[in-house]
Design a protein around this nucleic acid. Structure first.
Length: 816
RNA sequence: GCCCGGAUGGUGGAAUUGGUAGACACGCGAGACUUAAAAUCUCGUUUCUUCGGAAGUCCGGGUUCGAUUCCCGGUCCGGGCACCA
């Protein structure tokens, strides 16, 4: 029979569907595996990155199912978000229709790839049921004080007409459309993620080993914890009266308290409240005000180009020396870190140095190298010895930080402080296609929560998407409602939530047994059984955003009493990108390969085999049409040569000692592949080597014609390859083994025992030749044989050392 | 600038963690079958070579009987963070 991928794959896909082969059991006494791949946005069609992602997770899921474990391998769609609206604007489509049509199409693609996802747990985050539970959580979080509304300077994308979280601003531009962002003063809802900053940082330790180091480092940097000293700088009397005695001074933060005696000026962010006060009360000249405004309107990237500043004509008193220190505005001081004000030490900080040079400010060195001289015309930023530092002279600068902080605390003029780069997570978006934030604005009661029994607050379907303004705000009736407290007319919140909210708990929802879906988001018991996720697979691009938010939600849900663990994802595998012609596949570059076309031409098994064979999963994968065809040929050969197999309900029993050399070798290769498969599925994840092993075994089977050896080989190979090429292996397994071989396979040690062995012979560590010896040959004989074999390299030389590495090689060290 | 990864044939990549470098595959070459081609099968394929060998895992040192693997210094490539005080 000819190998026909399309027919055979369809047959097994409907077999799996009819038999509900991939549904997890609710029997929690069984051992479980939760295999999760990051769910896709329903953009319309799967791309190769998805195929790679799900081929990896499917391999894990199928392997563990074979091992008899209860496997949860769910899929869903992260289906809220701007592309749906953008499509609506462009093609005059309805976002909901567009989204759900895409979902239907993509479900078909999943099926045609043979992915073993649980069907009954499929969900889309735009489903009203999902929104209902999510809005419930939002209300709980608000009650706990973890969600608040505040006016703030926000990242605004002029193109997408929406606010972005700090994490969604990449190089000063929108992460989606690359438009430079501008700052806008708006009301916005925030999750208090900073309250969990320390725990999010500390718990990274729990993930060590399970997560890639790179991701842990990225999260650590993002949280950006730094310890230092915060203290107040007070204005002198003259400055104070200039400011109408409205300000006594301002607060600064430093991680270098050791340089305190070197402070020669201080700098405020242009957005600082003192600056704002001076502008508002005409305390600065017109020109100066114009300059400050210009500075404020400059984007953060442009600000980085050159340092600039403006003297405010104010002085503060140095807390230790009592001397006057001038106050400047500097464009490099960030309003949203620390207090928006810094002490400047040009002698020991590169930035302060550049600024001081430009404006001719004093540079006072207070740290010198332990040996030699500091480089001239450069800030000395290393550890050294303090001088010109009063009672701290002579101390090691690093160690003096402790003493100086102590001094400030003892004299109550400052205190040890920790700062984070992490900011609270702004979650409101001025968009239609998202989960509505379940709040109501009432003239009398202020901001009130919607009642839980009224959830979900669903989106209106009769909506006009023009790309201008907020469609919910523009809708004629939707936002009008009654106050949940006083029942008077009120206005619904028209902002919707960041879609990262949905992906922050979807992995919990998957644990819910579908029979309880209407009733509850998930139950404690279900979640306790299934979580943590045993293997999470996804792209490195989510290293910060999604993974940090999901960790945050997990901790919040724990504190709300819904779950009982700290971290959601025990093991994380970040897959590499799929490249073509050395570049990431993208529509704009025109270098995409359509999965559907590959399936139509070669079948799903070929696509899966190529993707897992071409590179280890964590590395980039270069698409290669020839190699895809190679994968197809292997499958075809594997199928064709199954005709050598004799059908049997069980693995044939073979007397190894009665076999000839080729037969023994073939068996050895088959069992080597089995050993490697167990290693790969459980620890190493290098599917490429497992496939190579199976190919070697096939090549070895080909050199012999013992039908028992063939049958045993296929029994094992179709078992270990089933997670990778499930259709063809099922076909073979059904035809010859009644599907009995898709189960754990026993490794037979006897096949690895050999009577003779080849040893490499090296002279001075350089391999020269080899010898064949009996397995139990004595060391003396081995050396004698090696000398004989290597005689021509030993002429006129003296052997000074003989090394025998058992079962590996002989090394003869010679001289002369 | 700081912090992580990498660098192995023409190509993708192996190498049991210090023990025969280049598994497996792609490509290429040769052969078989064929009137011919495709498909399939078989063999070869690190480089140089005076056909004896010699060199060889980015470069330079080191440790070792032995280094792709460990240590020191450097080059290049990729990624993350980036005026965070």
């Amino acid at each position: 029979m000819e190998y026909n991928a399309q027919d055979l794959e369809k047959k097994w896909q409907s077999y799996w569907e009819i038999n509900e082969s991939f549904e997890p059991s609710d029997d929690f006494s069984k051992d479980k595996k939760y295999i999760l791949s990051m769910f896709p946005f329903p953009s319309g069609r799967l791309h190769m990155g998805h195929v790679r992602n799900y081929s990896i997770s499917d391999a894990f899921a199928r392997y563990h199912r074979q091992q008899g474990l209860n496997v949860l391998h769910p899929i869903g769609f992260d289906s809220f978000g701007m592309p749906a609206e953008n499509a609506a604007i462009k093609n005059n489509a309805n976002p909901k229709t567009w989204t759900y049509d895409n979902i239907d199409y993509m479900k078909g693609e999943f099926k045609s790839l043979g992915f073993s996802f649980s069907k009954t747990r499929e969900l889309a985050t735009s489903d009203e049921l999902y929104t209902k539970f999510e809005q419930g959580f939002i209300i709980d979080m608000f009650e706990k004080g973890l969600l608040y509304r505040e006016k703030g300077l926000l990242n605004w994308c002029p193109n997408d007409q929406t606010v972005l979280a700090n994490e969604q601003v990449v190089d000063g531009c929108c992460w989606r459309c690359d438009t430079p962002i501008v700052k806008k003063d708006m009301n916005q809802y925030y999750f208090k993620i900073t309250q969990y900053a320390d725990e999010l940082l500390d718990d990274l330790k729990k993930l060590d080993g399970g997560w890639p180091k790179q991701v842990l480092t990225m999260q650590e940097n993002w949280i950006g914890k730094s310890n230092g000293l915060a203290f107040d700088l007070f204005f002198d009397d003259e400055s104070k009266s200039k400011l109408d005695s409205k300000f006594d001074g301002f607060d600064v933060f430093t991680t270098r308290p050791d340089t305190i005696y070197g402070v020669s000026y201080t700098a405020l962010a242009p957005e600082h409240e003192i600056v704002t006060y001076m502008i508002d009360n005409d305390l600065l000249g017109e020109e100066v005000v114009a300059e400050i405004k210009k500075m404020k309107n400059t984007s953060s990237i442009d600000r980085q180009k050159e340092k600039s500043g403006i003297s405010l004509g104010l002085d503060v008193i140095h807390p230790l020396t009592g001397k006057k220190v001038p106050v400047w505005i500097a464009n490099f001081v960030l309003m949203d870190y620390g207090s928006g004000a810094v002490m400047a030490v040009p002698a020991h900080d590169d930035r302060d140095f550049d600024f001081a040079k430009k404006y001719d400010l004093p540079i006072n060195a207070v740290i010198k190298p332990f040996e030699g001289e500091a480089e001239a015309d450069k800030a000395f930023t290393e550890v050294g010895e303090l001088f010109n530092s009063g009672e701290f002279d002579g101390l090691n600068s690093k160690k003096s930080q402790y003493n100086i902080i102590n001094y400030f605390e003892k004299n109550k003029i400052g205190k040890k402080t920790t700062n984070y780069k992490l900011k609270d997570w702004g979650v409101s978006r001025q968009r239609y296609w998202g989960a509505p934030i379940p709040f109501i604005h009432c003239d009398d009661c202020g901001l009130v929560m919607e009642k839980k029994e009224n959830l979900p607050i669903a989106l209106p379907e009769d909506v006009e998407i023009t790309g201008e303004g907020n469609p919910l705000d523009n809708h004629p009736t939707w936002k009008h409602c009654k106050c949940s407290k006083c029942a008077k007319d009120a206005i619904r919140e028209t902002d919707t939530m960041d879609t990262f909210v949905e992906s922050s708990w979807y992995f919990l929802r998957f644990c819910a047994s579908p029979k309880n879906w209407e009733k509850e988001a998930f139950s404690k018991e279900q979640v306790k059984y299934w979580l943590g996720v045993d293997q999470y697979i996804g792209g490195i691009e989510h290293a910060i955003l999604h993974l940090l938010y999901a960790r945050f939600f997990t901790k919040v849900f724990r504190d709300l009493g819904y779950i009982e663990f700290d971290e959601p994802f025990d093991n994380l595998l970040t897959q590499g990108m799929v490249l073509k012609d050395g570049a990431k596949m993208s529509k704009s570059k025109g270098n995409t390969v359509d999965p559907d076309a590959i399936i139509a031409k070669f079948g799903a098994d070929t696509a899966r085999l190529f993707i897992l064979f071409a590179a280890p999963p964590t590395q980039e994968l270069e698409w290669n049409d020839n190699a895809v065809e190679g994968a197809y040929k292997f499958i075809k050969r594997f199928f064709d040569r199954s005709s050598n197999v004799v059908a049997s309900e069980s693995i044939p029993s073979i007397t190894h000692s009665e076999l000839n050399k080729d037969e023994k070798y073939a068996r050895k290769k088959v069992y080597e592949a089995l050993v490697r498969a167990n290693e790969v599925y459980n620890e190493k994840f290098t599917f490429n080597t497992l496939i190579a092993g199976a190919m070697e075994a096939m090549n070895a089977l080909n050199t012999q014609n013992n039908s028992d050896v063939w049958s045993e080989g296929y029994w094992i190979l179709s078992s270990i390859m089933e997670p990778i090429i499930p259709h063809v292996t099922h076909e073979i397994s059904e035809k010859y083994f009644s599907l009995n071989n898709l189960s754990p396979q026993k490794v037979l040690d006897e096949v690895f025992i050999e009577d003779s062995i080849t040893l490499g012979v090296s002279i001075n560590g350089k391999r020269r030749t080899e010898i064949e010896v009996a397995i139990d040959e004595s060391k003396e004989n081995i050396i004698a044989l090696a000398k004989e074999a290597g005689a021509k390299w030993l002429e006129n030389k003296t052997i000074i050392k003989e090394i025998v590495v058992p079962k590996k090689l002989v090394n003869l060290v010679v001289k002369g």
